[in-house]
Write a protein that binds this DNA or RNA. Sequence first.
DNA 1: ACGCTATCCTGATCGC
DNA 2: TGCGATCAGGATAGCG
Length: 277
Amino acid sequence: MPELPEVETVMRGFRDAFEGHRISHVSVNRPDLRWPFPADLREKLEGRHVLSFRRRAKYILMRLEDGWSMLLHLGMSGRLTIGRAGTNATPPAHEHLVLETDSGARAGLVDPRRFGMVDLIQTSEENSHRLLAHLGMEPLSDAMTGPALADLFRGRRSPIKSALLDQKLIAGLGNIYVCEALFRCGIHPERRTCTLRKEETGALAEAVPQILEQAIASGGSSLRDYVQADGTKGGFQDLHLVYGREGAPCPNCGAESPIQRMTQSGRSTFFCPTCQK
DNA sequence: ACGCTATCCTGATCGC
DNA sequence: TGCGATCAGGATAGCG
């Protein structure tokens, strides 16, 4: 399921199956997800060669030969299942979009909650699309440095948890990785952003990409799902030190201080009250 | 300007 | 076992 590492993993699987091939068939199975599918989606995709792929934050971009790009976001429940065309007798429930290539690859977009979205945009205008234009720095890019974070955080009084989730500041972090990064850096999620010291922003600038890379290397939890679609979880869960572990002993300071859960701006935050100051 | 809340949906899970 | 309440990885509009 889609946080940045899963989106990256899905994008790579999508790319391996589709890049360099021609889209031979498109099936749009309902009018909308979060927003309507583009009316000309099928017409724009069918018959076109796929040139390349790119991920920006939690968005996937698929570039086509004639200057159009398909923009895809998986929302909270979206999955992209890659397989071979013609082998899937009964399509799964909530499979809203299916793409097939002339090489026999098949991509099915399953999204029960339908918070995902698909759009078509000019490749040359990718970055000015309303959903991409205001995104902040990529956490896996060279821009992610301690001083850069310090600049972003200066004068900001919101809790650090909220700031890290703010896509206008850093693009692609979700609830799980924010909890994990704050724990690994020993920073309390309710700390006012502007009170972070230089060594703390430095630690975050190192920990965030490190955790994301680790998760990508483990394949993300969607990997197995989209390869064999049997619901088996990937190694992703093992990386969680605090997320979803309310009441468990803190992996750092031990049983003296169980992991706690609280709510911040409507989202669950998991943390160790002893280790995170 | 900024931060918080409600909201779009369905499905899984928990407590009674 | 059944049922209702609660919660879920995202992102935005709108409010104070």
